[in-house]
Amino acid sequence: MRNILRSYTIETRLAVVLALICIALSVTAPQFATLPNLSSLMNQSAVNLIWAVGLLVVLIAGGIDISFAVASSVVQYLAAKLLMSVGGGNWVLGFLFCGSLGILLGLLNAWLIHGFRIISIVVTIATFNAFFGLLMFFSGGRNIYNLPDWWTARIFIFEHQNDQGVWSELNLSVGVMVVCVIATWVLIRRTNIGRQLYAFGDNPEGARRAGVNIAVMQGVAFGWMGLMAGIAGLMQVNIFQEVVPNALYGRELDVLAAVVLGGARLGGGKGTILGCVLGVMFVAVTQNGLNLLGVSPFAFQMIIGAVILVAISTSNMDLSQIMRRKEARS
């Protein structure tokens, strides 16, 4: 128990706080703990979670990515054009196109970072601007509504109608999200590649001397992020049934904040899937709760920002240190 507490301090704290919020919301907002609300909460968080686990891999490997949200938009746009040109395609082609386009964009970042030894924040801010600018230039900012039917079709992986006739549904994106989360967990926790990613993020020079292939590690981290961005792009279109070039612009920093809130270390070597999911859900539940409590939607962001500020101001305080000091004094 002591070990679990020690190695997952941030995760444990976040889980406790999240549980308290959930209990408080169940009491104050009767709608909160209902199946329809929780399923819509999951539907809304799916895309963010897919991005978040991808970003987690990059953060663990000691990098940072600003470009993933616009990369998703680029993938959406290109995939829509490509798929229409091959006559519409299907889900298999959709995943194949979006996944490989995403990986390509990720590998582009990795190549610039590793090939020229430029740090990731500089590269991804540059590619962020390049991706977005080119996308807006070539698309002219116009939305694409004319999409293949399979893509915009509503697919539910879970349906339930309660006594009042209210439907609770989980759509495909939740299922895809679960697969992405599990796949990422397997990658970083259960394979030797994942351990090398942690090692590389933790001590790049040490990893290099141990024989870890640095170029491949950068490729895996940013390639995985790209894959997740591609899949997130695909699923986002499935939810909103259109491609809007600037719809995802600006989402990257919110996802980053949530992932770091979940204990991933800026600088590498540390971060867990559990913490990452908790971080994203913490923000989502808070927003959902405020909504149910009838707080003005304009206040959501303010409260979430304040909560994150308080969270980071307290999370760096090591409670055990304070206890020890007290012991020493007495």
Binding site: L256, F298, M302, L309, I312, N316
Partner: peptide, 22 residues
């Protein structure tokens, strides 16, 4: 507190944006 500047200023950004919108 020793928190990471990216995180602190990001939280501040979200807070100020929310405050302004509110």
């Amino acid at each position: 507190v020793g928190a990471h500047p990216i995180l602190v200023s990001l939280a501040m950004m979200i807070f100020l944006r929310g405050l302004g919108e509110f």
